[in-house]
């Protein structure tokens, strides 16, 4: 039934010092739809590939606005994500009430991570089955953070999560060093190209229905680009040369 006797409880260490239940929760993140986040000096961009459960169903939203200066992309259990999103909105609003200024992105992400960690240490709880890509801009600059069910978080220049995110990661690893000086448009296109790598060959590809883009930056509140608004970028992507995978 179980893979081994150490993987059924959140409160059990394996003899090698691992916690299998947490690692399984991390798997839930990999099952979710894919997303890419990347940043330049002035902008942070998230792009997501939405899924629909059936022809008749709508596409599942993956980007959420937390505050004017923060947005998140989710991958994994959407219901868990909504809990975290709510929490982030609350913390952000509270901070604004007390200090009348924007909460630093890293401090908010740290709070989310600390909240997640509690769920990895007590019986009767399960870790959140969701990973977030947090895009934000504050006085310290543009930020991309990834949070995990384990309570870890990472401060990235560019990253992808979700199913088949490895191929997007490969694209990003080849190109991320040039992102810092990119214009917003170039940054979005890099994001879309990375996202395109996660789509299986037999699929329809990126279109205005299944792509959402979120942008935040200097004097640029977090903005969603969806539906028709994505078309200009998708068209630019169409006219890409097919050899865009070349190094730099």
């Amino acid at each position: 039934m179980y893979r081994n006797q150490y993987d059924s409880e959140i409160v059990t260490f394996s003899p090698t010092g691992r916690i299998h239940q947490v690692e399984y929760a991390m798997e839930a993140v990999k099952q979710g739809g894919s997303g890419v986040a990347l940043k330049s000096n002035k902008f942070a961009v998230v792009v997501s590939l939405k899924r629909s459960s059936s022809e008749l169903g709508s596409y599942q939203k993956k980007l959420f606005v937390v505050d004017d200066h923060i947005g998140i992309l989710i991958s994994g259990l959407t219901a868990d994500a909504r809990v975290l999103c709510n929490y982030m909105r609350n913390e952000s609003a509270n901070y604004k009430y007390v200090y009348e200024s924007d909460i630093r992105v890293e401090r908010l992400v740290t709070k989310v991570a600390d909240k997640s960690q509690v769920h990895t240490q007590r019986y009767g709880r399960r870790p959140y089955g969701v990973g977030l890509l947090v895009a934000g801009y504050d006085q310290l600059g543009a930020h991309i953070f990834q949070t995990c069910p384990s309570g870890n978080f990472y401060d990235y220049k560019a990253i992808s999560i979700g199913s088949r995110s490895q191929s997007a990661k490969t694209y990003l690893e080849k190109n991320f060093e040039g992102f810092a000086t990119c214009t917003l448009e170039q940054l979005i296109l890099h994001g879309l190209r990375a996202l395109r790598e996660t789509i299986p060959n037999n699929d329809t590809g990126l279109n205005s229905k299944n792509v959402s883009i979120g942008v935040v930056g200097e004097n640029y509140p977090f903005t969603l680009i969806e539906e028709e608004a994505t078309l200009p970028y998708l068209n630019m992507l169409e006219s890409d040369e097919p050899v865009e995978m070349q190094v730099n």
């Binding site: 009430y97 200090y99 630093r104 401090r107 006085q139 310290l140």
Partner: peptide, 19 residues
């Protein structure tokens, strides 16, 4: 302690005291 290079500004302190 957080040491992330950002410190409370005077206005933030003022607003905190007000709240």
């Amino acid at each position: 302690c957080i040491d992330d290079g950002s410190k409370l500004s005077s206005q933030e302190i003022w607003n905190y005291i007000a709240r």
